[in-house]
């Protein structure tokens, strides 16, 4: 058994180590390009002079370790160099696109949580009931539809049935916060739906498991009503056991938003990423990948912290 402080210290070290590794992987992936990276980036029709210039810009003649430390130092200061295709700092490009991707992910997460928890509680309190079976079956189907296909189907539904077409009308949050949210709502729902199914399924199973647990039985023998037991024992315990799953869901949501914004024509990181890939703009590409991964690392770290905050067993350094 460890002290709480020790546990937190270890978590912080793990966090730092993971972040470092992620940065290293990102960097190394774009440095091991087979052949001459400058030539690969520019394509075969570039002139020798252009290639030479790019080589100098990338600094490929310096040793890998120096370049990595250089890049990492820049990344920590928020300077990831200039994009080759846009000729602007990578940082600013990412910053202008981040509201779309992050906003969409956050909204999707909120939708997932506010739908999945009550639904799971209702279904788990009467497993096998008609409601439970219908909801569960619906969940299975949602699980199986790719988010981008779901988006198209919903766009189809909205245009055909309600005559509203929402795709491609993005408003920046600085212009009009209400319209910003409205423009991201449908895409967020599309990302959220399959993840609701996943979260619901996990929560339902864990709530059913905890309903049959010994401590729920003890609470019954203490004279608590079923509702009270659900609220004070079962939901908090399921929440704890689902923190990890929810952080996985969040990472999935971010990955999913890269694709879904494509369907809705939203100017987010996904489109920037695609254009970076097609233009072989590796500084921009590595910047996007690094930031997205870093956000995920931070999210995982936060979920660990939340877990430790509510679960005394984790504070004592026990794994569940």
């Amino acid at each position: 058994m460890r002290s709480a402080a020790g546990t937190i210290l270890i978590k912080i070290c793990e966090f730092a180590l993971t972040a470092l590794l992620v940065s290293f992987f990102t960097f190394i992936a774009f440095s091991v390009i087979p052949g001459d990276p400058a030539r690969v980036m520019l394509g075969t029709d570039a002139s020798e002079e252009q290639v030479e210039n790019l080589r100098a810009e990338l600094g490929v003649d310096r040793p890998l370790s120096v370049r990595y430390l250089d890049w990492l130092g820049g990344a920590l200061k928020g300077d990831l160099g200039d994009s080759l295709s846009f000729r602007t700092p990578v940082n600013e490009l990412i910053k202008s696109r981040l509201p779309v991707t992050l906003g969409m992910s956050l909204m999707a997460l909120i939708i997932v949580l506010i739908v999945a928890f009550p639904m799971a509680a209702v279904c788990a309190s009467r497993p096998g009931s008609l409601t439970d079976r219908i909801v569960s079956a619906f969940g299975h189907v949602l699980f199986a539809v790719p988010a981008f296909a779901l988006s198209m189907l919903l766009i189809l539904l909205f245009t055909k049935a309600f005559g509203i077409y929402t795709a491609g009308r993005y408003t920046a949050p600085s212009d009009d916060a209400g319209k910003y949210i409205a423009s991201l709502l449908l895409p967020s729902v599309c990302i959220a739906l399959p993840k609701i199914a996943m979260t619901f399924k996990f929560l339902r199973a864990s709530m059913i498991e905890f309903s049959a647990s010994d401590f729920a039985r003890t609470a019954k023998s203490h004279g608590l009503t079923d509702l009270k037991i659900l609220l004070t024992h079962i939901i908090p315990n399921s929440a704890v056991s689902s923190v990890t799953v929810i952080s996985l869901v969040l990472s999935d949501i971010m990955g999913g938003s890269l694709i879904v914004e494509q369907v809705f024509n939203l100017p987010g990181l996904g489109r920037l990423l695609l254009s970076a890939i097609s233009r072989r703009d590796f500084p921009l590409l590595s910047g996007i990948v690094f930031y997205l991964a870093l956000i995920t690392v931070i999210l995982y770290f936060l979920s660990d912290v939340i877990n430790a905050a509510i679960d005394p067993r984790i504070r004592d350094g026990r794994s569940l």
Binding site: D214, F215, R217, T218, S221, H222, G223, P236, N237, P312
Partner: peptide, 18 residues
């Protein structure tokens, strides 16, 4: 809990861990 008390076999998980 008021008039009738009950205790069971396995105490290992019979208390809410949180």
């Amino acid at each position: 809990g008021e008039k009738i008390g009950v205790i069971f076999q396995d105490p290992s998980s019979a208390l809410d861990p949180l």
